[in-house]
Design a protein around this nucleic acid. Structure first.
Lengths: 133, 133
DNA sequence: CAGAATCCGGTCTGATACTG
DNA sequence: CAGTATCAGACCGGATTCTG
């Protein structure tokens, strides 16, 4: 159907040729990365401020997520050895370029939110007999 | 930086307003969904054929992934009660429309694969002292 | 063929406590 | 402030076994 996607993604290739693709997709899919990227896309932030803006993320998860993003070159980290210690995070050029495909995806979700919710309701009414689940 | 994204995604909203966004992102991020969608995007397939094309997926995971995608209205399922039983899967219109943002993301990854690999190497050389990890 | 059910080890995550 | 370390529980995903 979509030849380009097929070519760029490959057939059985996620686990073979496309290990990195899978890894990046994992990053996109993990619980916090996208939220962090979007927040940093708005503007650079310090650790605590970033945590506040990111809803209920624990500082453990925030640290971990930031390390991953930093390692992939999507986020930079600037530590200033002031007295209580100041660290600022922001998007690299690479990270900012990721905003666009991410935006396309998020917009797709928002545009089809109703359709998905409806599909789920329909599916659930036909399945899931009566029970608690 | 990217106002549109910020608006559509919200600030702290992933866990509050945007539960569905998070759920769809989870779907994109999970190990097999994208591969399945891409494979079905090429053409409709039967269970076994789909499994063959999807590398090393177990039938447990294939079933589970398909159920999720079906519930979200992205995939249809057509069972024909023949003798050994025939089931065919394919993308719905909704599922096909998802191919585009997905493609944008995959293309971004492919286009930036080298940059990411390089960033990782650089990061790892500075960190990870010497050890086994 | 197309699954459902069960077992089970590994990973992810959050809470908590401690450090420069 | 900005983390690191540790621990326990939830969850994920694979292998195996069984059914219509």
């Amino acid at each position: 159907m979509d030849k380009t996607l097929e070519q760029s993604y490959g057939q059985l290739s996620i686990l073979e040729d496309c290990t990195i693709t899978r890894q990046i997709l994992d990053r996109v899919g993990d619980k916090w990365s996208v939220l962090i990227i979007v927040n940093l896309g708005v503007k650079s932030l310090r650790f605590k401020e970033l945590q506040r803006r990111s809803g209920g993320i624990s500082q453990r998860m925030l640290t971990q997520t930031l390390r991953h993003l930093e390692r992939d070159g999507l986020v930079w980290r600037k530590a200033t050895p002031t007295v209580p210690l100041t660290v600022e995070y922001g998007l690299t050029a690479l990270g900012e370029s990721l905003l666009h495909p991410l935006q396309a995806l998020v917009e797709w979700v928002n545009g089809n939110r109703a359709a998905i919710a409806e599909a789920r309701t329909g599916y659930d009414s036909k399945h899931e007999p009566v029970g608690t689940e």
